[in-house]
Simulated scan of single mutants.
Amino acid sequence: MDLQLDQLRALDAAVAEGTFEAAARRLRVTPSAISQRIKALERAVGRILLQRTKPVRPTESGLAVLRLARQIELLTGDTARELGAAASESEDASPEADRRVRLPIAINADSLETWVLPALSGAPPGVCFEIHREDEEHTTRLLRNGTVMAAITATAQPVQGCRVRRLGAMRYRPMATRDFARTWFPEGATGHAFATAPVIVFDRNDDLQDRLIRRRTRRPVDPPRHYIPATSGYAEAVRLGLGWGLLPDLQIGTGDYAKSLIPLDDSLHVDVALYWQQWRLDSPALTAVATAIADAAAESLL
């Protein structure tokens, strides 16, 4: 197969931006040029690569080519950054754009809120992050479909084509205000209390609270639930007494949370093991970020 760089860039831009028009603006060409390049790429591989919907979506074959496109983009950006000059003289991209390295990473919300950002601040110059916030149980999906090149995940089994490294574990404790605990947990953290007390859940993918509830109730229950998807909003909802919730130790000891919240049971907690998965790619930028993440995890996690 003879795959042209400008064709791979067009595919990447179309998927990332959602439409040919937006991809054209990103690459500074016309929508017709994007369409022609993707058609030429499809002829070269003999497969349909995109569903022409709004937004456009890659087919299964398209995902395989998309992973290749993004790996080439990363390595090209690495090389250009190291040389200090544009790696390509194509009309698609300015020298400034060629020197940038775009690094899409999936990170769970609690890590993003607590320990990850300081690690990312030490990235090499010219690296631009595209952070995808996703539950740690679901970040591997973004690795499989080529959306991201690396992810913090709760999955130890490596995604095909990726390598995995254990980072440590985040410890979560059931927290509530004193007034809430007196009202709903008058006899302590009993199964009946967990079955009836309002609980705050991040979203419908979040099962941390249910894991802890099952330890106490030993049966399926469905307590009243508040869904609060924003990380800071989640902790604030607990602080305001809307319900109880699991907060990471790294967050409990900060700000108003340490003053206004109490653990429902000091011996009750949920540990979530975290892993770093990344594509098997010898990219200096990706390697530097992986090292920074691992160093930060060693200092912050159990």
Rank of each mutant, 00 (worst) to 15 (best):
P95T: 06
A33T: 13
V238R: 01
G146F: 02
C128K: 10
P118D: 09
R81V: 08
A22I: 03
I293F: 08
E89M: 10
W244R: 02
P220V: 11
G191Q: 05
V15C: 05
T217K: 05
P58M: 02
R204N: 14
C128T: 13
F20M: 12
L142G: 01
R43M: 14
R133A: 14
D203V: 01
C128H: 12
P248K: 07
A22Y: 00
G233F: 09
W276A: 08
L27S: 05
D266Y: 03
L5W: 10
L268Q: 09
F180P: 00
L120D: 06
V116D: 01
A33E: 09
L264G: 03
M149G: 11
Q71K: 09
A258C: 09
L5I: 10
W244C: 10
I293T: 09
G126E: 07
L117I: 13
A97K: 01
L212N: 04
F202A: 15
P55F: 01
V127I: 06
A156P: 13
L117V: 14
P55A: 09
R133F: 03
A14I: 00
V101G: 08
G18Y: 02
P174I: 05
D222H: 11
V15I: 11
A193Y: 04
S35K: 10
D210N: 11
R163T: 12
F202G: 08
I107V: 15
L63N: 12
T155F: 01
V201C: 12
V148S: 01
A298Q: 14
I262R: 04
A288V: 08
C162V: 02
G62F: 04
L167T: 03
A22N: 09
I131C: 02
R25I: 09
Q71R: 12
R43W: 09
R166G: 12
G191E: 11
E89R: 12
A296E: 10
T196W: 04
G122N: 13
Y234Q: 01
R28D: 14
E134Q: 13
W184C: 06
R219N: 05
S32C: 08
G62R: 00
N108C: 12
D78F: 00
A292W: 03
A64M: 09
V116P: 03
L274P: 07
S300Y: 01
A298V: 03
E42P: 08
T140I: 10
D266E: 15
T76G: 13
E42M: 06
A40D: 14
R215M: 13
S94E: 01
H226G: 13
A195C: 10
G18E: 05
A44S: 15
F180W: 03
P229T: 11
R102C: 14
Q209T: 15
P125M: 08
L112P: 03
G126C: 03
I72C: 10
W276M: 05
E187F: 06
C162E: 00
A119F: 05
A85T: 14
D206Q: 03
R219Y: 06
P124G: 12
P248G: 11
W276S: 08
